[in-house]
Design a binder for these strands. Structure first.
Length: 926
RNA sequence: GCCGGGAUGGCGGAACUGGUAGACGCGUUGGACUUAAAAUCCAAUUCCCAGUAAUGGGAGUGCGGGUUCGAUUCCCGCUCCCGGUACCA
């Protein structure tokens, strides 16, 4: 008596695969390679959640399929191990993040192993927090630090080639992407001190120091991520947060903007993702030009993509951070303007742009229109203009821009009409293809393209500006005031940063006594004086690198995990790169994916790798969402209110709490909440009907939202193969879907029935010999074809449905032929590998199914055949007759009406098209 | 706000380039087996109306329009949900 004992089977084959090293790739081989990669996980304390396996199973199916096809497959899985949660946990408990992280990794590995993923065994040792790994992250940072961007060759070069130029020809000898504002001759350069030279070089290096704004929470003494700030207070504890500038590292990413755009054309990513990257980079052509301020020597520089609409400019807007406000504001407006600037300073960009209320202040000053004699333009400040984009100042053209229009209407400002036939009372006219300019002097009668050119020429001739290209892309901030990240291999001497000697790497994270921030805005490393201060007077960088540092190059390490000489071996790199298929969540569409592309391009420029795009094909698996619980805190208080009562309070902020704290009817267990964190233990709770009701919403499954569901219990109840089939069956890989257990029984039932198809009650095989009948071959070949086409499209739900159909069909046909069932088992094997191995063995095979040859299918059994032939009706109309619907050719020939019959049927009718399925006419179109 | 995506039965979803809407699974209902239950097997299952029944009629793919002989599919305008929005990873 044997039944499908998934626990024993799965344990048995997982052990087998480990012992036989079944999934190790050959380092370099004559075989074609296939590199299939998952975005590596951050090992959070709550373990793997049911969303992770979705992508992992999909990539595993592809990896196993390629093995069946004879490829040398690399399918790795490492860990993105630096990050905020472990540090936060350390602050709360004193536990070292390294310890927490390692424990989490071990539990992740256990969970991953349980799902039966065909990962190359070495790859699990890629952990970004491992000194043997981050030593190379630091090394790459030094490479970036020690390079500059040559605009003539359009690539990064080592910094030495720049100093060579400076020595020979001064600052004009290099056409570099830089931020240096002066100039010097070769002789000047040679006479400079080492320190002076390094100071200048910092303006050229691809990694540089600059001031940028952060969310500073004085009460917590730490910098917060944007999503840790809710409505101007910290999510944790509700303390006020202010914006504050801080000296930090950044990359000159804008130098790569055009190449990052161009590279998108040669990789197979989905169009929406490419679109998001293009929009993120946000290349726009236009002009930078100056407006003279009335009664002042100052000018205001603006950037506009529509200088052609300059005759419609009726006011100007400066970002609240704009330094000229202080200088230009009139005394009568000063108090109001300063209050406004202070108010908007502490709002995040998202808040500022989300705001539906239109806000702004007139600063009292006027600018002079450069092309309209005697026209005065009032200068305003408003926070819909961002300091970080363009010049932080705009000329507002209400007739041509909807935000300007809304602003003008709200403050009752002039809206000059500049488009022919467009009623200015109806709103802004933003078309770039139509629209003829009027009331625009020399631009009258022109449309956008011509007018733009002419306007730029006029601006240049007048000497007030020039045509420019602007990017929305900002140089990304590369510093974090945290402990748990890569230390910078940087030493400051007299305030100038110097790179460490690469031979001194890794620069290890020192042990600290407390993970608390230093309180002055420096990271916790600043607390360790003996580490920060070197005996020779040098001072180390106290910041650490952000989460995306280690993840920007990990894919280069997987085929050379233990290399101590270099970050990756060039021969292996050439063989394995680039990644054939990269699978991960679409939430990384712009962040990680753009940084990884940037690092790849820099490493390519510097000659370290042979490919300049890392990921040839990218597929974004849709998120499996979780159901989160929320409770409401009355703003600026310690009072929490039950869901039904929130209307009685002016403003409440939603706070996420763990899903386990509320029952099915959303009643909150307040005691659990109080035990959870101290901020809740002393808070006040306002109940309704004697209960406290939590709210809920569907959103991303993440530790932050405390809504994580763990897959272990599913493996426990149904087994990994059921989990794998079920997750694939849930829906298309790329769609988002909320997690649900409904229907998992069906997947399990399918495996049990399939088991009984192959094996008798006493465990012996049931299969018989003989060739398949037509019907049997058809369902088999349809199944093979379906799986193959689904592998290309990375959408497996219909494959699983096809397996179930196969089962129904062979049961109906009472099929037991080995020639039908064995090929089916190979098709099923990537989806339910343990199950397939076990049956395979029972069928008498001595070799593992993992490398069994993929079955071929015969086209005539699978192809949808369509017979289309034109028919003349009433001498004139052409008619197409379509036949088919997933039938084999012979069936069509048998069932379909003959051409003569159809023609007879159509006699005397004025029809255009006839749609026919076998044997009957379905739709006669009149 | 801006950028990207989505919406189809009670539920997850299927429908290849505009041509039988609802494959496959879950759930539900009825039946078989059983002393009974579980498991298993068989059948029905978009909704509404009529009929004892076979069956017949009507509506139907988020909302409002449009193109077409024909629209889940293409176009225009909305609503709601999800992801990103630069320090979550």
């Amino acid at each position: 008596m044997t039944q499908y004992d998934f626990k024993a089977i799965e344990a048995k084959w997982q052990t087998y695969w480990t012992q036989h090293n079944s999934f190790a790739a050959e380092p370099v081989s004559d075989k074609p390679k296939f590199y299939v990669l998952d975005m590596f996980p951050y090992p959070s304390g709550s373990g793997l959640h049911v969303g992770h396996p979705l992508g992992y199973i999909a990539s595993d199916i592809v990896a196993r399929f390629r093995l069946h096809q004879g490829y040398n497959v690399l399918h790795p899985m490492g860990f993105d191990a630096f990050g905020l949660p472990a540090e936060q946990f350390a602050i709360e408990t004193g536990q070292h993040p390294a310890k927490t992280t390692e424990e989490n990794i071990q539990s992740f590995l256990k969970q991953l192993n349980r799902i039966g993923l065909a990962h190359s065994p070495d790859s699990k040792d890629v952990k970004t927090c491992d000194p043997e790994y981050y030593r190379w992250t630091q090394w790459i940072f030094l490479e970036i630090f020690n390079s500059w961007y040559n605009l003539d060759t359009d690539k990064a070069e080592p910094i030495d080639s720049l100093t060579d130029r400076f020595e020979k020809g001064g600052s004009d000898s290099a056409n570099a992407y830089h931020s240096y504002e002066g100039s010097f001759t070769a002789a000047d350069w040679r006479h400079m001190s080492d320190q002076e030279q390094h100071k200048i070089l910092l303006d050229y290096r691809l990694a540089y120091n600059a001031y940028s704004e952060v969310n500073w929470c004085p009460a917590l003494g730490t910098v917060l991520a944007n999503d840790e700030v809710v409505n101007g207070v910290s999510e944790r504890g509700g303390h006020p947060v202010i914006r504050r500038p801080m000296r930090q590292w950044a990359f000159r990413m804008r130098a790569y903007a055009d190449r990052l755009l161009a590279g998108l054309d040669k990789i197979q990513w989905s169009e929406p993702i490419k679109e998001q990257q293009r929009n993120w980079i946000g290349r726009s052509e236009g002009a930078n030009f100056h407006f003279q301020v009335e009664g002042s020597s100052q000018t205001i520089e603006v950037f506009s993509t529509r200088p052609d609409t300059i005759f419609g400019a009726s006011f100007m807007v400066l970002a609240p951070e704009h330094p000229l406000i202080e200088e230009l504001v009139t005394e009568s407006q000063r108090a109001e303007v300063e209050a406004y600037v202070e108010w908007s300073r502490n709002r995040t960009e998202v808040e500022r742009q989300q705001e539906k209320n239109i806000t702004g202040k007139f600063i009292g000053a006027y600018a002079v229109h450069p092309f309209i004699e005697g026209k005065k333009i009032p200068i305003w400040t408003a926070d819909y203009v961002l300091w970080g984009y363009g010049t932080g100042a705009i000329m507002a053209v209400p007739a041509g821009d909807s935000r300007d229009y809304a602003f003008a209407q709200h403050f009752n400002l002039e809206i000059p009409a500049i488009f022919e036939g467009v009623d200015i009372n109806e709103g802004a006219y933003e078309s770039k293809t139509e629209g003829i300019l009027v009331n625009s002097a020399f631009l009258d009668g022109l449309t956008f393209k011509k007018a733009l050119k002419k306007a730029i020429t006029a601006i240049e001739e007048k000497g007030i500006g020039k045509g420019t290209v602007n990017y929305r892309l900002r140089d990304p901030n590369f510093s974090r005031q945290r402990y748990w990240g890569e230390p910078f291999p940087i030493v400051y001497r007299d305030g100038i940063p110097y790179g460490m000697d690469p031979s001194e790497l890794p620069l290890r994270l020192p042990e600290v006594e407390t993970y608390q921030p230093s309180g002055d805005g420096q990271g916790p490393l600043a607390n360790i004086k003996e580490w920060i201060n070197l005996p020779d007077g040098g001072v180390r960088e106290s910041n650490t690198m952000p989460g995306y540092a280690g993840s920007s190059w990990y894919f280069l390490r997987y085929f050379d995990v233990y290399n101590k000489e270099t970050f990756t071996d060039p021969v292996k790199e050439k063989y394995w790169m680039n990644v054939d298929l990269y699978i991960g969540g679409s939430e990384h569409a712009v962040g990680h994916l753009l940084y990884a592309r940037l690092w790849t391009k820099i490493l390519y420029d510097l000659g370290h790798i042979s490919h300049d795009e890392p990921f040839q094909r990218l597929v974004n698996q849709g998120m499996i969402q979780g159901r989160s619980n929320l409770i409401y805190r009355v703003r600026d208080t310690d009072i929490y209110v039950s869901k039904g009562l929130i209307d009685q309070y002016e403003e409440v902020d939603p706070i996420h709490i763990p899903i386990a704290f509320a029952d099915r009817e959303d009643v909150l267990d307040i005691e659990k909440l109080k035990d959870w964190r101290k901020e809740f233990s002393e808070a006040e709770y306002i109940l309704e009907d004697g209960r406290f009701l939590a709210d809920w919403q569907v959103e991303k499954m993440s530790k932050r939202h405390h809504n994580v569901v763990n897959p272990d219990q599913i493996c426990e109840m149904y087994g990994a193969d059921t989990l794998r089939l079920y997750e694939m069956f849930l829906g298309p890989l790329e769609d988002a879907k909320p997690w649900s257990m409904q229907g998992i029984e069906g997947a399990h039932r399918f495996l049990r029935k399939t088991w009984n198809l192959f094996v008798t009650e006493d465990g012996t095989p049931k299969v018989t010999d003989g060739e398949g009948s037509k019907d049997e071959l058809r369902i088999l070949h349809q199944t093979i074809g379906k799986v193959q086409s689904d592998i290309d499209q990375l959408s497996f739900n219909t494959s699983v449905a096809q397996f179930m159909k196969f089962l129904n069909e062979v049961q109906r046909l009472k099929t037991s032929k080995r020639s039908i069932l064995e090929p089916f088992l190979i098709c099923l094997s990537p989806f339910a590998p343990h199950f397939a191995e076990e049956i395979w063995e029972r069928l008498g095979h001595t070799e593992s199914i993992v490398r069994a040859k993929w079955p071929t299918y015969i086209e005539e059994h699978t192809k949808v055949s369509t017979v289309t032939y034109p028919i003349q009706v009433n001498g004139k109309m052409k008619i197409t007759l379509e036949v088919g619907a997933g039938l084999s050719k012979d069936q069509i020939e048998k069932d379909v009406l003959s051409r003569k019959e159809v023609t007879a049927l159509l006699q005397g009718r004025s029809l255009r098209k006839v749609i026919v399925v076998p044997g009957r006419i379905v739709n006669l179109v009149v």
